[in-house]
Design a protein around this nucleic acid. Sequence first.
DNA 1: TTGTGTTTTATTGCCTCC
DNA 2: GGAGGCAATAAAACACAA
Length: 280
Amino acid sequence: MESGRLFFGSACRGNMLFLGNGDSVYRGGSIISMEESSKKRPFFSSPEELFDEEYYDEQLPEKKRRLTPEQVLLLEKSFEEENKLEPERKTELAKKLGLQPRQVAVWFQNRRARWKTKQLERDYDVLKSSYDALLSKYDSIIKDNEKLKSEVVALNEKLLAKEMPGEALPEEKAVPLIMELAQMSTLPFNVKLEDRLSSGSGGSAVVDEDAPQLVVDSVNSYFSAENFEGCLARVDRVQSSSSEDGSDDGGSYFSDVFVAPEPEHQHHEEGEALYWWAWS
DNA sequence: TTGTGTTTTATTGCCTCC
DNA sequence: GGAGGCAATAAAACACAA
């Protein structure tokens, strides 16, 4: 058991027995009469009353005594400075407040516990909002992905129906066709790819401003350079607001175009992610 | 007035550190 | 082994709705 405990008399757990002769009770370092102690101080008194030591001393409950606002204020200040209590500071505070050092120590202990609880609540709030933001971002990426997938499927169907009904399309014919269809499409792939491809890096990308467009983080999104290694073109950024020069503070449209060195073309899916390959 | 929920003060037991 | 910290808990003090 911790030494220096039982300031208020021996106690069975949760049942305090106060030192005294029956007519008096130990209170914050002094003995008062039961008669006096039976007068109760209302919790919310006027500030004058609350800070009036004399008034407070006369309104003593027989058992636990609440600290005065003055005492609490000083303790709070001290806690703000340092939430641990060195023996010296404890004694000093106790003297200043007219409390037992043990009471000061207990107050700090309980205060630390309250602080910890509040901190946990704050941490929870931060984590939760972070989680919610991530979840919403994730949902939107999933939706975009689904949209892109269905667009690819639609394009493939058109391709096959147009060129070779009932047959697979040779790759050398598929590429120009996909480009053509992409231009006709109203979905996010409606980019004039040849603008980029024919003029090299200096060419200007053209975006259909009326069409629904996607915004993809070119750095953090799935659509990163690694995933587009060997690609003919990467749709780096498409957005709903029109942009004259194809660039804004968030980056430029199609700023990264990968010219494919590979001699083939394919449409390739891996898990939830969609790859778009084109071989020349 | 009374029942109930919350806050505050304090104890107990265990653990760690020196 | 003593001192101090912490978690769990008790119980008084208090707020508040019915």
